[in-house]
Amino acid sequence: MKEQAIPILRVADAAVSVRWYTRLGFAQEWEHRFEPGFPAFVDIARGDVHLFLSEHTGDATPDTLVYLRVADVDAVAREFGLPVEEAPWAREVHLTDPDGNRLRVGTAREE
């Protein structure tokens, strides 16, 4: 088993969030509910990168910041209609999901 850290993001409506994260290249892997009508807990993945989206109120707080390193930040910038910012360590865009979670998406600079 490969070890990894998976951030958990609090969301109000997992289905809405899954659609938004699809624009970033994520796809839903699975969804769990203890019973029908209960809050959803969803795993989304972009290659080997996973995020958990949780409707459970105690799992996380809105306004979390996640850094996502990608191969092509320009494609993400085009998808969201944003300019790419130049930082000494990477080229980046800053996004906010429908629930107020913040994502800094960047491509590392070539050395």
Rank of each mutant, 00 (worst) to 15 (best):
M1I: 07
M1W: 01
K2L: 09
Q4P: 00
A5V: 13
A5S: 13
I6T: 12
P7M: 03
I8A: 03
L9N: 02
R10E: 00
A12D: 10
D13V: 10
A15C: 00
V16R: 15
V16T: 13
S17Y: 05
W20I: 00
Y21F: 14
Y21V: 00
T22Q: 15
R23M: 05
R23L: 13
L24G: 07
L24W: 06
G25M: 06
G25L: 08
F26E: 00
E29N: 09
W30L: 15
W30V: 10
E31D: 07
E31L: 11
E31N: 12
R33L: 01
R33E: 01
R33M: 03
F34T: 12
F34G: 08
P36K: 09
G37W: 12
F38S: 15
F41R: 08
V42K: 08
R46A: 13
R46I: 03
G47V: 10
V49T: 14
H50A: 06
H50Y: 12
L51N: 07
F52P: 00
S54E: 01
E55M: 07
E55I: 04
T57M: 08
D59C: 09
D59W: 00
D59R: 02
T61K: 15
T61C: 10
T61S: 15
D63E: 12
T64C: 14
V66E: 01
Y67F: 13
Y67K: 11
L68Y: 06
R69P: 00
A71P: 01
D72G: 03
V73F: 14
A75T: 11
A75G: 04
V76Y: 04
R78M: 05
F80M: 10
F80Q: 09
F80Y: 11
G81K: 12
G81R: 13
P83N: 04
P83W: 07
V84S: 02
V84P: 02
E86R: 10
A87R: 15
A87I: 05
W89C: 02
W89H: 13
W89Y: 15
W89N: 11
R91Q: 11
E92I: 14
V93D: 02
L95A: 03
L95R: 04
T96C: 14
T96V: 15
D97I: 02
D97G: 04
P98T: 06
P98E: 09
G100I: 03
N101A: 05
L103Q: 01
R104T: 08
G106P: 01
G106V: 02
T107V: 03
T107W: 08
A108Q: 08
R109K: 14
E110F: 10
E111R: 12
